[in-house]
């Protein structure tokens, strides 16, 4: 139960970072989810390098977790280039050229992975957009696109790891934010598990992320993966997905969850409510559009 936001800048817009744009949009719909806030951000990819973020907790527990992570990285020939501890996160950049899926499943046993990608970094924690920004300096992140999410926990706990966005466990650079509920969750999850995929939470949003990542890894374009998701997933949903190049949305056939979009020469912005879009353009009457039920679309800088 929550509010979602996504933005793609068609080119650099002076004075506005992707991070700040998402903070503003989420601030506009914080009433939809006061428990936690999260961001999927894409910035500064270097070939052959991966960025990893983990929840490590605090004090002694954090030191132990970091030690476990370092050992696991070493075992999998991932060489640490850069590392730091921010809030309850451990962030590390490694040189890595192996099998990402195997690597990430193994790493998951060492500590709670938040995200892995060449450019993706997910920042999420309990608290409001402003509070999470104060802890993790989201406003400083540039990059062409990103997603954001505010969460009201309904069935799972208020924990940082249960908040959104969700990384597609095992697949680099894919993230999702979702408003709604997938009712054939277990059926779809078992289907994917039989094919060897692992899940790190019981959250239906992780399922969407892994489902889409699986389709992408089979060579489907993102928009085709979104199309099949509308047929395969049952329930009420409005979700946004991001890869290292694109963002996209899909909306269920029942139109039970809100979504509004706005596009101009500079950017494409999608949010649960128009009030979030107006946060980017105060005082302006925007020509917005509500996507029809059962539809999807994608945007990237190259188009």
């Amino acid at each position: 139960m929550c509010g979602i936001a996504g933005i793609l800048f068609k080119h650099e817009v002076p004075g506005l970072t992707t991070g700040q744009a998402l903070i503003d949009m989420l601030d506009g719909c914080q009433h939809r989810g006061p428990d936690s806030t999260g961001f999927a951000l894409y910035d500064g990819a270097h070939s052959g390098q991966l960025k990893l973020r983990f929840f490590v907790g605090e004090a002694e527990a954090a030191q132990e977790a970091i030690a476990r992570i370092r050992r696991a990285l070493d075992e999998h020939d991932a060489k640490i280039v850069e590392e730091e501890t921010i809030g309850n996160n451990y962030r590390v950049i490694v040189d890595f050229n192996g099998n990402l899926q195997k690597f990430s499943y193994a790493i998951e046993h060492a500590a709670k992975v938040i995200s892995i990608g060449s450019s993706l970094e997910i920042v999420k924690d309990v608290g409001s957009a402003a509070e999470v920004d104060a802890r993790y300096e989201v406003n400083k992140v540039h990059g062409s696109h990103g997603l954001g999410h505010v969460r009201l926990a309904t069935e799972s706990d208020v924990k940082p790891e249960a908040s959104h966005p969700f990384w597609a466990t095992g697949f680099a650079d894919i993230a999702i934010v979702h408003n709604g509920q997938i009712t054939n969750y277990w059926k779809m999850r078992r289907r994917l598990e039989r094919r060897g995929f692992e899940f790190t939470t019981d959250n239906d949003s992780e399922l969407i992320a892994v489902y889409l990542a699986d389709k992408l890894s089979q060579g489907l374009p993102l928009k085709d993966a979104l199309q099949t998701s509308i047929e395969d997933l049952d329930g009420t949903f409005s979700f946004l997905v991001s890869t290292d190049r694109e963002i996209g949305y899909a909306k269920d056939r029942l139109a039970a969850k809100p979504m509004v979009m706005y596009e101009n020469d500079d950017l494409v912005a999608v949010a649960s409510e128009e009030v979030s879009l107006n946060k980017l353009f105060p005082g302006q009457a925007l020509q917005t559009r509500e996507p029809l039920p059962g539809t999807f679309a994608t945007w990237s800088r190259s188009i």
């Binding site: 409510e273 128009e274 009030v275 879009l277 107006n278 946060k279 105060p282 005082g283 302006q284 009457a285 925007l286 917005t288």
Partner: peptide
């Protein structure tokens, strides 16, 4: 700016002109 609940609960025969978008 698409804020919610504008004008809610008004029970009088007046005109309210909203110059822009309203929310829920």
């Amino acid at each position: 700016d698409a804020r919610h609940h504008i004008g809610v609960g008004l029970t009088a025969p007046i005109d309210v002109h909203i110059r822009g978008s309203a929310g829920y």
